[in-house]
C-alpha cells in the first residue's frame, strides 16, 4: 500500500518537514495491516525500518523469556523502533496487541533526509528525543512500582 503525504503530516515526527520532504518520504514509505499477535521485531534484532501506528495497538516488551514484562503499549501516531534512527539493535520486542495499521519507512532514508537539511534533522530528532524521554519517564515510574507499596 502506498502512503499519501497527508498521512505523514498526521505524525508528529514529520509535521515539521517541508511539504516536498514529506512527499519524498511518503514515496519511500509503505503501509501495512497486521493482525493481533504479529511480531514486528524482536529485542536484539539488527536496526532496520521505523514504524508508526495509525490505528490499533502495539505493545513493547523488554526482557525476553519467562520474565518478559510489558513496557508500554503504543497509541496511534507513536513511533515504533526509534533505536534504528541511532543505528542500534532493537531494544524491545514489538507485538501487535490489537489489529493495527502501520506506516513503515526505512530508517536510512529518514537519516539521509536529516543529514541533507540540518534544520529538518533537528526538528525530527527533537521529536524523536521527546518520545524517547517520555518512555524513560514511564519506565522509571514502573521501576518505582507505582501501584505496589500501598496497603
Amino acid at each position: 500500500m502506498t502512503v499519501e503525504p497527508a498521512v505523514l503530516a498526521e505524525l508528529p515526527l514529520f509535521r515539521p518537514l517541508p511539504l516536498e520532504a514529506r512527499a519524498a518520504l511518503a514515496a519511500l514509505a509503505s503501509m501495512e495491516k497486521r493482525p493481533s499477535g504479529f511480531v514486528i521485531f524482536e529485542e536484539g534484532d539488527p536496526p532496520g525500518d521505523v514504524f508508526f501506528v495509525l490505528d490499533g495497538r502495539i505493545t513493547l516488551t523488554m526482557g525476553a523469556g519467562a520474565g518478559a514484562s510489558s513496557a508500554r503499549s503504543l497509541a496511534p501516531a507513536e513511533i515504533v523502533g526509534w533505536s534504528s534512527l541511532l543505528g542500534r539493535p532493537r531494544v524491545a520486542r514489538a507485538v501487535v496487541s490489537r489489529a493495527a495499521t502501520l506506516v513503515r519507512i526505512p530508517a536510512s532514508d529518514v537519516l539521509e533526509l536529516c543529514e541533507r537539511d540540518p534544520r529538518v534533522g533537528y526538528a525530527v530528532m527533537a521529536q524523536a528525543f521527546e518520545q524517547v524521554a517520555d518512555r524513560l519517564v514511564d519506565t522509571r515510574m514502573q521501576l518505582l512500582d507505582l501501584y505496589g507499596k500501598s496497603g
Binding site: T59, S70, R72, S73, S97, Q142
Partner: peptide, 19 residues
C-alpha cells in the same frame, strides 16, 4: 484501564496510568 505488565492475552493498554 492500563497495566504495567501483561501476558500475551491482554489486549488493553500497557504502561503507567499517567499515559
Amino acid at each position: 484501564v492500563t497495566v504495567d505488565r501483561a501476558g500475551p492475552t491482554w489486549r488493553g493498554h500497557v504502561g503507567v496510568v499517567t499515559r
